[in-house]
Design a protein around this nucleic acid. Structure first.
Length: 556
RNA sequence: GCGCCCGUAGCUCAGUUGGAUAGAGCAUCUGCCUUCUAAGCAGAGGGUCGCCCGUUCGAACCGGGCCGGGCGCGCCA
């Protein structure tokens, strides 16, 4: 509603400009010159259009703003503004400020109460098929907090995009081949021998975590042959066993974190289908391949990469990139129009070559988006927890979940923009839970639920909204109306952060309203109006929390 | 050396096609429960937006150069 009004004011401004100054070269882009002011004394919407064109017109911006205002006022019914805008002001240095009429506020509440769970939904995505690939950890150890943050970001973003009309598939790419998996097998085999009393030197690059012992024990128990001489130390067996077990652990962790995937794609499956081999031939036919020093190279510099990349090493094996290109070919073959990958910062150097590959496959560069999620540094009792998978020194997602639960952890991982480092203090998140931002939002919801329960009201939308005119009430309604735009901002930024920040703000305005005005009071009509307002607030809070997959308590 | 991210209040961070007096949470201090949930609210203090130039009506934001921090630059994954 407010979103539509913003669009129509933008359009009206553009039209006005053309009418008053037909010779102007300035090319206004609808809505580009209208924004919500920081300071509410500057109105509900403000435009800096006069400031943008004053140079070309060689007139004072205030004068131009006045001309625009006069035109808008004289044609307000024709432009469809008269009902919703009750005042337009010009303020130095040349801003045009719009003040909403009460009507738009009432309509906002009605819209929320009518659409309920669907408020904020729209068709921005136009059923575009999007794949979000995230976490995609090697099955060589439990998930770390870095993966946890990526999981929270990917899952919430997927929820939001689905809500906005995209057809989203959440996918986990299982890296079950290659060196790391081999090292996993060697590590387990070594522990296996050690447990059977025949220790040998542990591989220098092996995984040292205690879970390796657990896996070795499990293998010993399941395979029974007691004499070590009878055991087949085929490393692949150890690798396969370890990878499949660890994958189970990972799946369990993600489930406990309330993150669901639609598709799990193992790299080995692509290899078996021959897709990896084929991709090299495919690129060769297209002329993007050359041979040098016994290796096969991809001329990724043709597509803006800073150097060419090896696809087949001189020993005949593939580099990591090759199956990944095949995988992306596979993604596009499956009909995805937009592919979004969520990676850790250690992979940012990889973006260039994969984007090059995507273009070599005949796709546009922007059909692939990569979100680099910066690391989350875990703090315990004020000092950072060191993290290294190899050394086995890291806090797993499971441990975080056991300590503080999925709600608080999911929310904490989203509290900063993805490109910002995140300090996550475990002891703080746990100990000072009463001052936790998650509870702040949930508490607002619980308070409203309690009010509504007490009022006994089940039927909304029939109240006289015009009775609401306290500043705390109006501020709340206006913010409620911004919910759809905040969701769109999340998609634009590819970051759920805007929603997190919005919900904190909304909860804040509600708490303020709550402390200033009573909902349940003697004035029956006013009470009904306020019940509509708080129910609307409750719905938006619930919709937002649901998209973040944080629980929505009726009481606390 | 090259590339990417970052530098804003004591701490953690918002501030995104340049806009009006730079914001929030935490921490510190002061008030508010006989009234719908105090897991809350109100108020106070706290700033050379890393530094220097430039672009213009206007720069935390754009450009250039420094300083500082993180990460990446492999026929590893």
């Amino acid at each position: 509603m407010i979103r539509d009004l913003k669009a129509s004011i933008g359009q009206a401004l553009d039209d006005t400009l053309k009418q008053i100054f037909p010779d102007l070269n300035f090319n206004p882009q609808t809505q580009s010159n209208i924004e919500i002011p920081n300071d509410k004394t500057h109105g509900d919407l403000a435009s800096n259009l006069a400031l943008k064109v004053c140079k070309e017109l060689k007139k004072s911006p205030v004068e131009i703003a006045h001309q625009i205002r006069t035109y808008l006022n004289n044609n307000s019914s024709k432009l469809g503004l008269s009902e919703y805008i009750h005042k337009i002001e010009v303020e130095p240095p040349g801003f045009i400020n719009f003040f909403f009429s009460h009507k738009i506020l009432g309509e906002t509440i009605i819209e929320i109460l009518t659409k309920k769970d669907n408020f904020g939904k729209n068709d921005l995505g136009k059923s575009k098929k999007v794949q979000i690939e995230f976490v995609s950890a090697n099955p060589t150890g439990p998930l770390s907090v870095a993966h946890a943050r990526q999981a929270a970001v990917g899952d919430s973003l997927a929820n939001i995009m689905e809500f906005l009309g995209f057809k989203v598939t959440r996918e986990f790419y299982i890296n079950d081949e290659g060196n790391q998996i081999r090292i996993l097998g060697l590590s387990i085999a070594s522990r296996y021998k050690e447990l059977l009393g025949q220790p040998e030197e542990f591989p220098s690059d092996g995984y040292k975590g205690s879970y390796i012992y657990d896996l070795a024990k499990e293998m010993i128990e399941s395979s029974k042959p007691k004499k070590i001489e009878e055991i087949d130390f085929n490393i692949d067996l150890f690798s396969e066993f370890g990878a499949s077990r660890i994958l189970k652990i990972i799946k369990k962790e993600l489930e406990d974190f309330k993150v669901k995937f639609d598709v799990w794609t193992p790299q080995s499956q692509l290899s078996k289908k021959g897709e990896v081999k084929q991709i090299v031939e495919f690129l060769r036919k297209k002329g993007f391949i050359y041979d040098k020093d016994g290796a096969v190279w991809f001329r990724s510099t043709d597509f803006g990469d800073d150097k060419d990349r090896v696809l087949v090493k001189s020993d005949g094996t593939f580099t990591y990139l090759t199956p990944d290109i095949a995988y992306h070919q596979d993604k596009f073959k499956r009909g995805f129009e937009w592919v979004i990958n969520i990676w850790g910062p250690d992979h940012h150097g990889y973006i260039g070559r994969l984007k090059a590959a995507v273009q070599a496959l005949g796709r546009k560069k922007d059909d692939l988006s990569v979100i680099i999620v910066q690391l989350a540094t875990l703090f315990k009792d004020g000092s950072p927890v060191p993290m290294s998978t190899r050394a086995g020194q890291y806090v797993t997602l499971q441990e975080v979940l056991d300590e503080i639960g999925p709600d608080v952890s999911r929310f904490f991982f989203l509290m900063r923009r993805v490109d910002s480092h995140l300090d996550f203090d475990l002891s703080l998140a746990k100990k000072e839970s009463s001052e936790n931002p998650v509870y702040y939002i949930q508490y607002a919801h619980a308070r409203i639920a309690s009010i509504i329960k007490k009022s006994g009201k089940v039927d909304f939308k029939k109240a006289d909204i015009s009775l609401l005119h306290e500043p705390e009430e109006l501020d709340l309604v206006k913010l409620l109306g911004q919910f759809p735009q905040e969701l769109e901002a999340c998609v634009k930024m590819l970051d759920p952060y805007n929603l997190v920040s919005y919900l904190q703000q909304l909860a804040g305005l509600f708490h303020k309203f709550y402390d200033t005005h009573k909902v349940i009071n003697e004035n029956h009509k006013l009470m009904l109006a306020r019940l509509d307002l708080v129910e609307g607030t409750r719905l938006v809070l619930a919709n937002g929390l649901k998209l973040l997959n944080v629980s929505i308590p009726e009481k606390m």
